[in-house]
Computed example of a mutant assay.
Amino acid sequence: MNGADALMRTLVENGVTACFANPGTSEMQFVSALDGQPAMRPVLCLFEGVATGAADGYGRMTGTPACTLLHLGPGYGNGLANLHNARRAYTPIVNVVGDHATYHRQYDAPLNSDIPSIVAANSLWVKSADSPDEVAAVTAEAITASHGPPAGPVSLILPADAAWTDTSVTFAPASRPGPRAPDGEAVEAAARAIRSAKAPVVLI
Rank of each mutant, 00 (worst) to 15 (best):
A6R: 07
L11Q: 00
T17N: 12
C19V: 15
C19I: 13
F20V: 00
S26I: 03
E27K: 14
E27T: 15
M28D: 04
F30L: 07
F30D: 13
L34G: 12
D35K: 14
D35F: 15
G36D: 12
G36T: 04
Q37G: 15
A39W: 09
M40H: 10
A51E: 08
T52F: 02
G57Q: 02
R60H: 10
A66R: 02
A66W: 02
C67P: 08
T68Q: 03
L69D: 06
Y76E: 02
G79V: 10
A81S: 14
V96L: 13
D99M: 14
A101Y: 10
R105L: 12
R105N: 03
Q106D: 10
Q106N: 09
Y107T: 06
Y107N: 02
A109W: 07
P110E: 00
S117C: 02
V119Q: 12
L124V: 00
P132Y: 01
I143N: 05
A145T: 09
S146N: 01
V154C: 09
V154K: 01
S155W: 14
T170N: 13
P177V: 12
P182Q: 09
D183F: 13
V187N: 05
E188A: 14
A189C: 11
A191S: 15
A191C: 13
R192S: 07
I194N: 00
R195V: 09
A197E: 01
V201S: 08
